[in-house]
Design a protein around this nucleic acid. Structure first.
Lengths: 331, 331
DNA sequence: CTGAAAGCGCTTACAG
DNA sequence: CTGAAAGCGCTTACAG
């Protein structure tokens, strides 16, 4: 391994001077900087991040906590977040936490992360508490929590859901069902509440038997739609907790020969690239997930660098995109 | 931050003893281990990976070099690889390298990675050379390179392609087109060569105008299929370089109102979960991508831990899965 | 403007 | 079986 000492020797300066020169410290003369830089490239030297991290007492690595890396939703979070963090001189580390128990905090310490983005926190999760207790910076992504205050980036479903329901109800649906996300996440809960509120304004309500809940995954939508449709007298429209759930529902419909939107209308939430496919054309509630992911990156970095800054909460607006999976009932 | 020193103080032992006890060093007495462990949990202590890495001279972090994190193919590599590395006590670090130039090696040094999985190396890439020169362990994933010898995990397209073509030709197609991957990757090249060889055995050949090349992405398939179909007298079957390309082709067909497999048959390579969707039902060449990804994790770890072990090359067999996108021409 | 010294949190010979 | 010492590659006061 080639170290700053080797560069120092070649440049004829001391090791700390190499450190200063390469970080462009104004106290180092231009001439020296020149010599050091040349020596560095000659040797193909790059400062070792581990040495640096140990020395300054914190790394430039932020963890992203997710449940399921196969879930395509996360791919569209990871890509822009990774990119933005890199731009800011930080690194993204993936953490999968199915259990949502305490270990996240230990994991963070053990792996020397400087901060964490929680993309998976359930409402009653202990993780934010632990993080807070240990003074580990974190931000909520697409989630919030009752207990612990922290930076957050979330979505306001209001406008999108309002437009979606105006469309669906306007098309003549009165018997509306839903496959919502988990009740113990703020996102699942908030979307569900918004739907119920807006339906109420229209003088409608979800029948208890037409409502299902489950994790935000393909199977929830897939099995859920079958459950709803395979008993007699099903709803004519099914709202899904997110796009991945809706994709599951769409495929279940195809499997059992139920036409969409002919026999049942289906809507999602997220507007993932897949939802725009000609093969899919999912009607859904859209927002800027790319920008949200980048914002989460910015917030965690800001928090790491200025721990005492006031708490920030970025809320992204939604709008409805009508495509081919919603139509008048029985058409 | 809580360190081994704090644990030592609480347990009434020296700091090195804490280090030994927690790594279950046989030279430490059981009684002492007990005391140290208790002190550690009492303080919520976890050994700091940065300190450890600096001390032992290498980290337990391996980089995965990919081109495009949004590409769903990689999600199905990242998830199992991440999981296997974690099981082995290692960490996955994502590296995106669109340019495929030298920086990967610098990146590895700078971020203190102990090894690298190359999932994106073009045939003429300089990256393996640089890695080799610096003595950085790496393994080729789904790729190989002429120049530098290294561990590799690849797919043998032979059997799958043979079965695929038996199906397509058996159904009566004689005018077969293709949208292959990049010519400058071993994977793209190998699949193309296999197709040409097997076609030749059947007394068939690809017409020059029916063959396209491009990156392994959605757009290549999408734009490619339009190109092939929008000129007169198109092929009746189109083989795609991989599933993501085939998905693009399928959607392009849907957009322009071309029926699959009625008007054109389409086949892929990879058998991604999406290809199994009822909405998709792509005929494709399958292999165990999960296992391959885990094997790559095992190989890089083995290489890191035993740099002088003989070079290993794991080759995975393929088979064809006929689904709904292939049928007799004009049916 | 530059160098010598100390220290970040670990691990690993070396003594005892 | 355990501790004191040295060192991994950096950064950062502290002198000069």
């Amino acid at each position: 391994m080639i170290t700053s000492r080797d560069v120092a020797r070649l440049a004829g300066v001391s090791q700390p001077t190499v450190s200063r020169a390469l970080r462009d410290d104004p106290k180092v003369s231009e001439a020296t900087k020149q010599r050091v830089r040349e020596a560095a490239v000659a040797l193909g030297y790059a400062p070792n991040a581990i040495g640096r991290a140990l020395s300054v007492g914190r790394s430039t690595r932020v963890g992203l906590v997710v449940t399921d890396l196969e879930n395509q939703f996360y791919a569209h979070v990871i890509a822009p977040m990774h990119h933005e963090l890199e731009r800011l001189g930080y690194e993204l580390v993936l953490i999968t936490e199915s259990s949502e128990s305490a270990p996240v905090a230990e994991h963070v310490m053990a792996h020397g992360l400087c901060g964490v983005v929680l993309a998976t926190s359930t409402v009653e999760s202990i993780v934010p508490v632990r993080l807070h207790d240990r003074g580990i910076p974190f931000v909520y992504f697409n989630r919030t929590s009752q207990g612990v205050q922290a930076d957050a980036v979330t979505v306001d479903p209001e406008k999108g859901v309002r437009e979606l329901l105006a469309d669906v109800i306007g098309k003549g649906h009165t018997r509306i069902g839903a496959i919502f996300g988990p009740r113990n996440t703020s996102t699942g809960e908030q979307r569900e509440n918004t739907v119920r509120t807006v339906l109420d304004e229209h003088g409608l309500a979800l029948a208890h038997r037409d409502v299902l809940h489950g994790p935000f995954d393909f199977r929830t939508g897939h099995d859920g739609l079958r459950t709803l449709l395979e008993r007699g007298d099903p709803p004519t429209a099914v709202l899904c907790g997110n796009d991945v759930v809706a994709l599951g529902a769409l495929n279940a419909a195809a499997e059992i020969g139920v036409r969409v939107p002919g026999d049942v209308s289906i809507a999602g939430f997220d507007d993932l690239p897949t939802s725009r496919w000609a093969l899919v054309r999912l009607s859904t509630v859209a927002y800027d997930l790319d920008e949200m992911s980048r914002e989460a990156a910015r917030l965690i970095v800001a928090r790491v660098e200025r721990p005492d800054a006031p708490v920030a909460h970025s809320v992204y607006p939604t709008h409805y995109v009508a495509r081919a999976t919603t139509a008048a009932p029985g058409v």
